[in-house]
Amino acid sequence: MLEMVITAREADLGHGLKVRRVLPYAKRRMVGPWIFVDHAGPVTLAAEDTRAADVRPHPHIGLSTVSYLLSGQVSHQDSLGVHQLINPGDVNWMTAGRGISHSERFKHPDSFAGGGLELMQLWVALPEADEETEPAFTHYPAAGLPVRDEGGCGCA
């Protein structure tokens, strides 16, 4: 039985980069382990404006983020020394644990070209026993991920 419908709200990350945020919501802080559910884009910016949309370094603790890039290009950098270029279809799993700082940067002029940048990001609450775990980052390239074509939808 459907308990409630949550309408996404727009949050401005600055310089034209906006996300539609489903969680958290005033009447529902979490759904299962999910504490944030964001959808960015598709957003297009002129090549000369892409660096202005950079998400500057910021910290996370006690959670993981799962990011799936639908289109565009993003450069991930973090306090573990990871520098990872993210392309469409790639998935990143970043575990903050006891603490990590990271940024998302748009270094390539094509980051917002064509259909624009589009990204899904889900934030996962870690079990209490794992909140102080060592931070980690794992990149899963699209080529290594399973894809299932069901009814012509090309669903992953």
Rank of each mutant, 00 (worst) to 15 (best):
N87L: 15
G41L: 01
A129Y: 04
K18E: 00
R28T: 14
A11D: 02
L2P: 05
A96R: 07
C155T: 00
A129E: 14
G99A: 14
R28V: 11
A53T: 05
T138F: 03
G116Q: 08
L45E: 00
R21Q: 13
F112E: 01
S67T: 12
K27W: 14
I100W: 01
P42S: 07
V82Y: 09
G62E: 09
Y25H: 15
L119N: 02
G16E: 07
E132Q: 13
I35M: 15
V37W: 11
A11T: 10
K27L: 14
L13Y: 09
A113D: 08
G81P: 07
D130L: 12
G14R: 04
H39A: 01
R98E: 09
S79Q: 09
K107S: 14
M120K: 02
W123Y: 07
T7G: 09
S103P: 05
H139Y: 07
A53I: 05
R9F: 05
A11E: 14
Y140A: 03
R98I: 07
V66H: 13
H15W: 06
T65F: 05
L145H: 05
V55W: 03
F106W: 09
V19W: 09
T138L: 05
G154E: 12
I86H: 05
I6D: 06
V74D: 00
R28K: 15
L13T: 07
A96H: 10
V91D: 02
P59S: 04
L119T: 01
S71R: 04
L69C: 02
L117G: 02
I35D: 02
L80I: 07
P59A: 13
A143T: 13
D12K: 04
F112R: 05
P146K: 13
T50D: 06
F106P: 11
G32D: 08
T133N: 07
K18G: 11
V124H: 07
S101D: 11
G99I: 06
L119E: 01
E128A: 15
F36M: 08
Y140S: 05
L117H: 06
A129D: 14
S103G: 08
R51K: 15
I6V: 12
V66C: 08
L122V: 10
G32E: 06
Y25N: 11
C153V: 09
A113F: 07
V19F: 05
R98L: 03
H39W: 01
P57N: 03
S67E: 00
A125C: 11
S79L: 14
P127S: 14
E150R: 14
L85D: 04
H60M: 10
V66I: 10
G152F: 06
H15S: 11
V19M: 11
